[in-house]
Design a binder for these strands. Structure first.
Lengths: 209, 209
DNA sequence: TTTACTATTGTCCCATGGGACAATGCGAAG
DNA sequence: CTTCGCATTGTCCCATGGGACAATAGTAAA
């Protein structure tokens, strides 16, 4: 599935025809706002073919907006002019590719293939991450506190002191944490936390210049 | 410190003058090979100002070469022509920025500032990573095996079975692993392993399309 | 008010982790 | 041949983790 955003109707249909012929499903949008109004389903394998210069929200602006909304849809930009600074910003902001019009079918299809392949990977990573975060979200405030300390290597006793509770209590919370996070060992718990970005930077390795 | 690679001598000296005036130390190289011959010190805060088109190894080729060599020096490309595909590749390959000639002092100094700031961060991350890897490298083969299993949540008993040894033996190895890795808890050990990329992808979350 | 969730703490008991002290066997480097 | 690093295993003992069973109390929702 490819989402085409371009204000030029004849261009849209031309590209649409090319992509459909290549076996892709296509949805077209005359403006960024049209796409925002019908946000593509994140879970469907797809990418966005986005014109850099369009009336209303510009391509990069739409990219920023989607990013704010947490979208991971890969974006392939199309631009009529070879604007290096814009290209640099777009790629650094995560665009999959930037193509110049007129674009050959080879370039176009290649870029779209890469974008879709990339989306597939991203989507999987994302779903794992969200699964972990969902589990964390189900922890009660107290359990969350215990969690934070446990993954940093604190023993039950140490956690008990910090949180002003009995070791026995911490044991109970810890047990529920392991349960809710669906892990069998401390190692797994730390792995998940690390991958979910719960553990900030480790102290002690700071380095001035 | 800024390393300038450009085949045009007059351009080199012009830029050199501008940068020195802005307070930077400068080293110039007439070709990619000259820079490779005197590889800049990774530990010094610096960046490379690299012309895209130079005789011999091209800019992107030098970039690839440095990358292979494990360099993390940030690269700011300079190009006389607005080549979008090349720009895209350069940025995706990790270039800090791509500027078009003629370049304003504002652009140039801004890009260099960002590159140096980025290098500072990268360098710190890198030194931490290397410290961890250095520790791992000091493990004996057997200790390494124990390490791999322990960070995946295996108990001493389980490790013992897998490696065909007594639980007591594993305990001994494990003890030395904790010692050599300089950590006090399993949680820290897992954190380090995770950050060093020792733990591959977790099984069980695969997802087909 | 009754139910449900959360936080808290206890005791008993067993499994596991980890330190102390000690020893054996093997292969490589000197 | 001797020294050194590595792998191996033992016993004793204590600290810590974790399951089972049980209970109290406050708060918020139904």
């Amino acid at each position: 599935m490819v989402h085409i955003v371009d204000d030029d109707a004849s261009f849209r249909t031309a590209i649409e025809r090319r992509l459909k012929q290549a076996g892709y499903e296509v949805a077209t949008y005359p403006s960024a706002q049209h796409l925002l109004d019908r946000l593509p389903n994140e879970s469907e394998l797809s990418c966005i073919l986005l014109d850099m210069r369009i009336p209303g929200l510009s391509g990069p602006e739409l990219q920023a907006r989607l990013s704010e909304l947490g979208s991971t849809l890969p974006i392939v930009f199309l631009t009529g002019y070879a604007e290096v600074p814009t290209t640099v910003r777009a790629i650094k902001a995560g665009a999959e590719d930037v193509l110049t019009k007129p674009v050959s079918s080879e370039e176009l299809l290649g870029a779209i293939e890469r974008a879709l392949a990339h989306h597939q990977v991203t989507r999987n990573q994302r779903s794992r991450l969200e699964a972990v975060r969902a589990h964390i979200a189900k922890l009660t405030p107290r359990e969350r506190e215990v969690f934070e300390l446990v993954i940093r290597g604190k023993t039950n006793k140490q956690v008990a002191v910090v949180l002003g509770a009995t070791e026995r209590t911490i044991k109970a919370h810890r047990h529920r944490v392991m349960e809710k996070m669906q892990v069998q060992s401390l190692a797994e718990l730390v792995s998940l936390a690390e991958r979910a970005g719960v553990l900030g930077d480790l102290p002690g390795t700071a380095q001035a210049n």
